[in-house]
Design a protein around this nucleic acid. Sequence first.
RNA 1: GGGGAAUUAGCUCAUCUGGUAGAGCGCAAGCAUGGCAUGUUUGAGGUGGUCGGUUCGAGUCCGAUAUUCUCCA
Length: 902
Amino acid sequence: MMTANEIRKTFLDFFAEKQHQIVPSAPIVVKNDPTLMFINSGMAPFKDIFLGNSPIKYPRIADTQKCLRVSGKHNDLEEVGIDTYHHTMFEMLGNWSFGDYFKKEAIAWSWELLTGIYKIPVDRIYVTVFEGDAKENLPFDEEAYQYWKQYVAEDRILRGNKKDNFWEMGDQGPCGPCSEIHVDCRPDDERKLIEGATLVNNDDPQVIEIWNNVFMQYNRLADGSLQPLPARHVDTGMGFERLVRVLQQKTSNYDTDIFQPIIQQVSAWSKINYGDFASVPAHASDNSAMREAGGNSPSQNADASEKTDIAMRVIADHIRTISFAIADGQLPGNVKAGYVIRRILRRAVRYGFQFLDFKKPFLCNLVPILANQFEAVFPELKKQEDFVAKVILEEENAFLKTLEIGLRKLDDVIKNNPSGSKEISGNIAFELYDTFGFPLDLTQLILRERGLHINQKEFDVAMEAQKNRARNATAIDTEDWVVLREIDATQFVGYDMLECEAQIVKYRKVKAKNKEYYQLVFDRTPFYAESGGQVGDTGVLVSDTELIKITDTKKENNLPVHISDHLPNNIQDSFIARVDASKRKAITSNHSATHLIHAALKEVLGAHVNQKGSLVNDEYLRFDISHFQKVSDEELRKVEQIVSDKIRANIALEELRSIPIEDAKSMGATALFGEKYGDHVRVIIFDKDYSMELCGGTHVPATGQIGLCKITSESAVAAGVRRIEAITSDKAIQYYEEKAKAFDEVKLALNNAKDVLKNINDLKDENSQLKKRIEKYEEEKVNTISNTLKTNYTAKSGYHFLVQRVSVPSADAFKNLTLSLKQQVNNSVTVLVSVIDNKPMINVAVTDDLVASKTFLAGNIIKELAPFIKGGGGGQPGYASAGGSDVNGVDGALNKALEILN
RNA sequence: GGGGAAUUAGCUCAUCUGGUAGAGCGCAAGCAUGGCAUGUUUGAGGUGGUCGGUUCGAGUCCGAUAUUCUCCA
């Protein structure tokens, strides 16, 4: 039996022999495509070629591509692991023709590989072809049908509708009919009973699609219409995990040697067998989480065993996704792609926590197994094994903490639930989930244990409202490109020039919420499009009669687009495209400084330092690195020192604009994980023994132009990732100037003190001493007054009272005096009035025994007195206070108090 | 991009509707035991994230801002 690794190799070798260039998998994390966060199919890395934004480098390509899907036709995240054949991460084997071969060869080769080499029995294979669609005016795919007929019996060639057999990249873009290959894996007796053809595309877990051949020949426009494509392409995708399952004759993807190493490890840790489900004895389940849930009857134990199987599948699937995503540069976070990774990670932790009784981090310990398993095909994980494990560990700890907080909140909710009600508000459950990240299913489990349940309908309504809010806020409407001229690709001249003549090649309008703008594409441009952390250029587009502001420049699938609020009136004109030079100069200085800092960090901290993120704009630079401790002040000073030396050495830039990537690597140039490089790259060198990086950004001609570099902050962004921020050039000079100025001002304020620091510390000490002295003075004053006053109480039957105007230094002292009297005179009511800073104040204190007997309540008394001084007041039964604005009312208040108490 | 929440002593967190800022742990000192673990008593430690507003009075209500958490897209 072939191993998974052999099956993959066989595929690649087969197509290499058919003159295909074998390329490595692109990073699973997508950059430069606003519509996609992760590579979700084998073709995604080639989107720029299909869209015509990039030239074709090889007419034939084959590869295995890491893919990630969390939503889609059958791939809701919450479904993964429940069945035995869906995944969040999977490998897609693919062979491509870019304007080269078409249906004939694609069909012949897929047949040859599957039946001739992999030896899948012919009588288990079904193929589908597109039946046509009248509404779209699309014909039956006769061509594909004829080619298949050469190999496959006609009754095994099925006709599929638009949903199954017409593939589209998205709402817009290249598309075409496709032809799927399905394999019937059922045992012979079942196959005799039910004809396999009836189960194709019918969600039968044993009759599955393994390969889809897409024949791209149309382009879908924004208005929904179809246009024929000038160059026709073949895009195929074969689900690797499914293929392995078929060839290893398993009934579940998770039973193959792709997933078993992980599952066996998880099974060993939890001491629960995988796959016992259905034949499990009633007592076999040793799972406290389920027992707590009340699963003690035999039937529920069978259920429990299924749940432990599901949990192991969830973990085996998710650990792959998060490990490879992190290795490709996507750290877990709380927005966008980072959030997707966090959510997947948490789902795995949740299943382990709930069904396998893993109460401590465990996912991180699975990373080495994966790293070794995939070392040959995806070496990036093995190379960053420790880093990935550390990030996962930190995430697991953070989630366990979140769970703890949630458990406490839920406890409060249960305590406060009116007795007798068995239902907890769905809104509260939603709040727990939405605000505190406490998973709904855990809420339900815990409530069930106490005989409670939530109002599911309320929860769903709240959830739906949340979704609608988000959808409305992000609705973007993109119109079709209006093409003015045909060109191969925009020529970027911005390394050498800051302005050039340009014509608009195409443009389109984009409507987002509250704003509307245009995207312009030029035939040539000096504008650098945001990439590799360097922000896009701004500037202007000028003709004889017009001036249009360019507010940003971005890359969409390798297409440089210039953002503008307006279109020129004369769109066909020739323009001068001019970059904002001073801004570009600042950006450039920061970018080169980033390289110098990067090299210095490697020198000071060690070779384990890798770039984990970078932002370069005209204000500052931000640089994230993998490093496990805080970078100490001393280390930062060393880095600054090295960078400073390199600046003063005024090292000339050496730029290799286009050299083969292999040459660059053998020179020792630094390449980044998670970055997609072409086969020709640009290398930026500042002293070949110091800094040599693959980079597309703009750089200073010599390091002296940076002038000055100052690291302004060092912080943590995630486990194992430190962030360094720095400024250069004018901004750095300004920084020092401002510091110096501020210091001079401080010094001046201290009468030009020689030792400023000592002077300030002395002042602080003096200040706190004075504060204490005032406190003491006030305390004494209060004591004196209270000693006098405590003998002045009038005795009534059952209580004593005092109504008195006093003079005290502060509101605080006033309060202390009142409370001190309350404490010293038993069985008393104290009403004090004072004027502090021209404001009248009243304090009322009632001793606890009188409060208990409800003879007097301070809060009630103050409400009667406050109006006299035109104020409001309130407090507790034992102490209340009021303030007002009318000093003339003081006597009235005193009289009223006497009246009440007499 | 849009919602929600949090920010109080060195740490973890209380303070019900605006009216006396607290607890546990940690820290310091004293006492108890031959010493330690420990027990016990006392004490220090707070511009309540920052800025503004409402109010006689704001940790508490409102607005802005920063940071963190969290959910949705």
